[in-house]
């Protein structure tokens, strides 16, 4: 029984990890290339989920919703870039933090006005209903498996683009030394628009994918955003590979911690205090892991930035 639980929770952890990766990938590249800290990146994820929910309700099809939500999420991202973000590139991190914080407040409220405060539910698409039998008597929801696969496929595609194409080479060079790339005559701003747009769309994609298994509500992007920060700090800012490994790690620690910690505490404590201590410890686990990794490697697992 325990190994089965462990298996299921590990899979859930990996599935959560790839969602985190989709959000973190854009964040780490945007930061790497433009030295721009965007707190409002989580908003993209939230918008993706809301757009997915609305389009799903309107069209009755999850697939149409996915197809429609992505370009709209991209447009929303580019609009924000044009309205606010591009005025921040030359500013210090403090101004960037504040202004993008303001964007979060505004958009969370806007979402509340348009869709209300109550969580929305999105049904799992019929094609992906039910479960996969892992072993006799043990099934895992097909939809979660689909998220895991889609996430892995996207990660693979992203890896190919970043490692194997000219654009990818520029992005990598930009992350390790942006002034150098600008000096080579590359229009760094256009490169950034591209990276930013991709990042916005990836986060939006994660939001749509997450909608059927999570409740869609205002502020849902904030929690994911902070975990995505943890991911890119652990992975090393600007590193897609680092973000991928760190995202899986964080997803696993978070999910396994929450399900196993209370049981683990039962070994030492009575039932009620065990549940409490377990829950408290589980909520700290990711951050303690982050602290441990940074104490060991202050610039993350795969630092890219030169100097």
């Amino acid at each position: 029984m325990n190994t089965q639980l462990l298996l299921i929770q590990s899979l859930n952890g990996l599935q959560f990890g790839v969602l985190l990766f989709l959000v973190a990938a854009g964040l780490t590249l945007v930061f790497g290339v433009m030295d721009f800290i965007n707190l409002a990146h989580g908003v993209q994820y939230m918008l993706g989920a809301y757009l997915g929910a609305s389009f799903a309700a309107a069209t009755g099809s999850f697939w149409w919703a996915l197809l429609l939500a992505l370009p709209v999420a991209l447009l929303a991202g580019l609009l924000l870039e044009w309205l606010v973000f591009r005025h921040l590139y030359a500013r210090d991190h403090l101004a960037q933090v504040l202004a993008t914080f303001g964007v979060i407040l505004s958009l969370n409220q806007l979402v509340r006005m348009v869709w209300g405060s109550a969580p929305l539910q999105v049904p799992v698409p019929a094609l992906l209903e039910g479960g996969i039998q892992l072993m006799p008597g043990l099934t895992w929801p097909t939809y979660r498996a689909a998220i895991l696969l889609a996430g892995l496929a996207t990660a693979g595609l992203l890896w190919l683009v970043v490692e194997r194409t000219r654009i990818g080479a520029l992005v990598r060079a930009g992350a390790s030394n942006a002034p150098m790339v600008a000096a080579l005559g590359v229009d760094i701003h256009r490169l950034f628009m591209l990276v930013f747009g991709c990042g916005a769309m990836l986060a939006g994609f994660a939001g749509v994918m997450a909608a059927p298994i999570l409740s869609v509500e205002p502020g849902m992007g904030d929690t994911v955003l902070i975990l995505a920060f943890v991911v890119i700090v652990i992975g090393g800012i600007g590193s897609v590979r680092g973000a991928f490994i760190a995202a899986l790690l964080v997803g696993l620690i978070e999910t396994l911690g929450r399900s196993l910690m209370p049981d683990l505490m039962r070994l030492f404590l009575a039932a009620s205090p065990a549940r409490q201590t377990g829950a408290a410890l589980a909520s700290m686990l990711v951050y303690v892991a982050m602290a441990g990794i940074l104490a060991w490697r202050p610039r993350g697992l795969f630092p890219v930035r030169a100097g």
């Binding site: 606010v84 101004a95 504040l98 202004a99 303001g102 979060i104 407040l105 505004s106 958009l107």
Partner: peptide
């Protein structure tokens, strides 16, 4: 929110 953006 927008006020905050403008101040920043």
């Amino acid at each position: 929110g927008p006020l905050l953006v403008l101040v920043a």
